[in-house]
Design a protein around this nucleic acid. Structure first.
Lengths: 253, 253
DNA sequence: CAGTGGTCTAGACCACTTA
DNA sequence: AAGTGGTCTAGACCACTGA
């Protein structure tokens, strides 16, 4: 793994002759996935890692800087480098983009589980979650989120059962506010990326009943796939939101 | 610009509290804004900039790396560092997130200008665009975008007239596909950030007439503020989209 | 106080582009 | 061949943290 060794075997040391700092970064990510350091835990210092891998501190630094840029770790001067935990992110609602319209109050929503069941996956669920053929079951749950007591969002969530044994019971028991915090603590699965597809739809009869509105009311539908640090798809969620007092905010650069 | 010199000028344009590479970065950004190098043009090499500012190459490198991370410049090994031009970005439609639904074709939309006028700003326009009190006029335009000939999006755009003299005439004359490419080429104003707020709305009578649909059809409304490299707000755009065959896609990390 | 990450300099070699 | 950005090492000093 030393610079000298890689120079003497061009293109041969590792599957691809990637830069040293990229190799270090990949090794560190693999160790984070393996759970060697849990969410929120302290990594060894730059100097220790450099000694361990036989490279210069600056090389480890560049690897850790890139991991920090990807939100995999958080660096704190004087303290050290920590595995990112969702509790350490911008907020518990890091991936939650539905906010009160400008001027509205900032209170967090409450969550009520309408139903939780473990059932065979539909073809669509199986496909969207990229599940292996031999795995058939999903944990399907329906939740209603209320702002100031008023129901505004319906979430229909499907998750591969084989990744999360006992998840249905956990949901019934804990009724957690945030899915990702729970699966991170209980299953050591860290969600690092979501892809959302937004459309405008008319409220169905089911929606209307749950939200106490007229059927046909325009709603914002958010179709989300959540991806874990190892690339597994861990959730397919379809949310329908009333946007009379809230809006979906996103910043693009 | 040496570390020593900046320490001797507390509270100056470049506060001593900032790291050297941040000061260099700010100076370089200022020069880009001033137009010293136009969009797509080559910056001096790291070595030249380091000599010019009297710092080490590595310090300039860190400044340029951060500018590259912000998409202000593009770095190419063996060639040099270039000011970002929207034509060099991921695509001409870098900020355009409305895409055909999965499985749909990928053809680009056409743009038709319905109206262009220079008029006094409403109170809302003045506020949203953060315009100075003494500036009163906006260029207001309405466009319809068609996919495969079918009208799907109405865009209502307001821009501060004082920032873009002659813009209304340019719009009438050129009917450009993309606003940002035009104002970059003609006014050397580079849009680097947009904030979008999405809601679901019912099509108005106006919308229905322009898109040949029934009033009340659910539509996706995208309220966008576009920000230039110097922090100026250069556009307020409200788009209404039919999402029967298209969707708004965003990836969050 | 020792240990951590943050900044800065210095110099080497590399891969890529252009002429 | 010359010039560019990309990588890596090396060592210095700083600011911040916590015992």
């Amino acid at each position: 793994m030393s610079q000298h060794a890689s120079q003497n075997r061009p293109g041969a040391l590792l599957p691809e002759s990637m830069p040293l700092y990229v190799q270090i970064k990949n090794l560190l990510i693999a160790r984070v996935i393996k759970g060697e350091w849990g969410p929120g835990e302290l990594l060894p210092s730059e100097m220790r890692l450099a000694a361990e891998y036989g490279v210069h501190q600056g090389t480890v630094r560049k690897a850790l800087d890139e991991m920090a840029a990807q939100n995999l770790v958080v660096r704190q001067q004087g303290k050290g480098t920590f595995v990112n935990a969702s509790s350490m992110r911008h907020s518990t609602y890091h991936f939650f983009r539905v906010l009160p319209k400008a001027g509205g109050s900032m209170e967090a929503p409450t969550t009520e589980f309408v139903s939780v069941e473990t059932v065979p996956a539909t073809a669509v669920e199986h496909d969207r979650l990229n599940m292996p053929d031999e795995q058939r079951d999903v944990v399907r749950s329906v939740r209603v989120r209320r702002f100031a007591g008023v129901p505004k969002i319906i979430e229909r969530v499907s998750q591969p059962a084989y990744l999360f044994p006992g998840l249905a019971e956990l949901y019934r028991e804990l009724q957690p506010e945030t899915t990702y915090g729970l699966i991170e603590r209980r299953y050591r699965v860290l969600v690092v990326k979501v892809v959302e597809r937004l459309t405008a739809v008319a409220a169905s009869a089911d929606d209307a009943a749950l939200l106490e509105i007229a059927a046909g009311t325009p709603m914002l539908e958010i179709d989300r796939i959540a991806e874990a640090i190892d690339g597994q798809f861990v959730e397919w969620r379809v949310s329908r939101c009333l946007t009379d007092a809230h809006e979906y905010v996103v910043e693009l650069t």
